[in-house]
Amino acid sequence: MSKLKTIKEYPLIPASKPSEGAAGRTGLWRTFRPVVNLDKCIGCRLCWFYCPDNAITISGDGKVEINYDWCKGCLICFHECPVKAIDRVVEEFG
């Protein structure tokens, strides 16, 4: 498993470069999947603001997109949405 085979390969301090998904595909942790209903969405950006994993992006035309590779399914967006435009769906990974 380890990428560092001997002590000589170790950095002096336990630092790491930020990179997308350094801890693996955390989307696999989900039990519920938040799904945006764009017909109801008013573009308030509260879900984007509250998402603790930066898994929500707003496109140029104000459209909400959820990146399911990193969304852990915490459902904070579902809880915060003032117009109930986010549904929760039981996740079934293949």
Binding site: M1, S2, L4, I7, Y10, I13, P14, A15, S16, K17, P18, A22, A23
Partner: peptide
């Protein structure tokens, strides 16, 4: 940029 104090599994911690 880099981050300090990340998780180190038992596979990594000992050497530090």
């Amino acid at each position: 940029p880099f981050s300090l104090g990340n998780m180190a599994t038992p596979d990594y911690y000992y050497e530090f």
